[in-house]
């Protein structure tokens, strides 16, 4: 009798403890697109380290070993398959997560289109649509699909990973026609979104990560120009600090991960 009631109490205790730590209802929830590598993966790691609940999404997560490893390492990381160009999929995931408030929607997934495709005089027009669909329409559709989830949360932030390359005032050497157009377009829709959702208390951030050494910038790394690359860890560490401070009064501001403003 005594042993079974002791075991029963132990079991009950363990169960409650498990529920308490797994849901961690105090902790904010972040949904990250493009979490399989690069800064997306690093955002997942650093927010998970904080004990936040992460919904890490990627196009083919079953193939992403690093992301799978993170999910195995942290209880608070879950994975969803999500291609930001697949609007039906976005709607399905939004529906699946209907009761889940999302404190930060981090629109991180993006592509460069590759430098060699965007050289004036021999532009490869085939990549334009992909660049636009992923970099502009993706974040816009994600924002539409998850606005209620974000508005239902405490932090209410939609953060868009843009780039200094989208700054018209900063254009120095000619290159990356489609990529730059996509980031300028992203900046424009998000400036408008900031206005649109302000009365719901939702903050829309437009923040660039600076120059980071990941697969994404391999086109720049190849140039061997001794550019000041940050590691993903450095970039994301600073970026998260900027997100922390980015409030409703900042909504629609175009910043870099140092907190400085970019010119439009």
């Amino acid at each position: 009798m005594r042993l079974s009631s002791a075991l029963g109490t132990l079991l009950l205790g363990v169960t409650f403890w498990h529920i308490a730590t797994a849901t961690a209802t105090d902790s904010p929830t972040v949904l990250i697109t493009g979490a399989s590598r690069g800064i997306g993966l690093e955002f997942t790691r650093q927010y998970a380290d904080r004990g936040w609940n992460i919904i890490a999404t990627a196009r083919t997560p079953q193939d992403d070993e690093l992301l799978q490893a993170l999910a195995a390492q942290y209880d608070n990381v879950s994975i969803e398959q999500l291609d930001v160009t697949d609007h039906a999929e976005i709607d399905a995931v939004a529906k699946k997560l209907a009761d889940q408030p999302i404190d930060i929607l981090l629109n991180n997934a993006g592509i460069s289109g590759e430098m060699e495709n965007q050289i004036f005089g021999k532009i490869n027009y085939d990549v334009f649509d992909d660049v636009m669909m992923i970099n502009v329409v993706g974040p816009l559709k994600m924002s539409e699909a998850f606005i209620d989830h974000v508005a239902a949360s405490d932090m209410k932030k939609i953060i868009n990973v843009t780039s200094g390359e989208g700054s018209i005032g900063r254009v120095q050497f000619p290159a990356l026609y489609f990529y730059r157009s996509s980031k300028s377009a992203l900046n424009m829709v998000m400036v408008n979104l900031a206005r649109t959702v302000k009365d719901r208390g939702v903050t829309v951030g437009i923040i660039g990560p600076g120059l980071v050494r990941t697969d994404f910038t391999s086109y720049l790394q190849k140039l061997n120009m001794n550019l000041p690359f940050q590691t993903p860890e450095e970039s994301v560490n600073k970026y998260i600090a900027v997100i922390d401070d980015y409030g409703l009064e900042d909504s629609g501001s175009y910043l870099r991960n140092t907190g400085d403003t970019y010119p439009w």
């Binding site: 989208g166 018209i168 254009v171 990356l176 157009s181 980031k183 300028s184 424009m188």
Partner: peptide, 12 residues
């Protein structure tokens, strides 16, 4: 916004 930045690049 997209055409503005593209044509600034094109100018260069």
């Amino acid at each position: 916004a997209a055409l503005n930045i593209a044509f600034v690049s094109l100018a260069k």
